[in-house]
Amino acid sequence: MKKTELLFLKEDVDIPYNWAAGRYGSLFLTRLRDEGKFIGNRCPSCGKVYLPPRVVCGPCFTPPEEIVELGDTGTLVSYSVVNYPFIDPETGSRRPIPYTLGYIRLDGCDTYLSHFVDETDPAKLTPGLRVKAVFRPREERTGRLQDVLHFKIVD
């Protein structure tokens, strides 16, 4: 049998989406935008505080209805310095590297927020460091998690 010429077809797909942030998510993002403040929510059953706020406490399966205002300092729980060329699905273009992805536990809450940390030297990073949020100026804030520019190390 004659050898088959193997073909493949190329297509680029671009589908815009609109994601609903929900009631708690919207409250969180508007307070972030308008006041430069973090809010979480507390489970009435176990007392744990969620940030970002969410619709249900997993272990208790109870809505954490109490809104809690949190400060802008916390602890770096863990991190990675990303150093490989990577296409950002948000923008479709390459994200500048190196950058540091951090998981931060803000003081007074029991879950983590992922964000950028402005230190890319692994020798200067370790779980447990104290960090503080750096907000964009009010006029640049649009109601997204990126209204916080990054977290800086304050140890």
């Binding site: 942030a21 970002p52 948000e90 998690l145």
Partner: peptide
Amino acid sequence: DPIMGRQFAAGAPS
């Protein structure tokens, strides 16, 4: 999560 995390992650490796 597209609202609360995708902005900072880099696929599975991160």
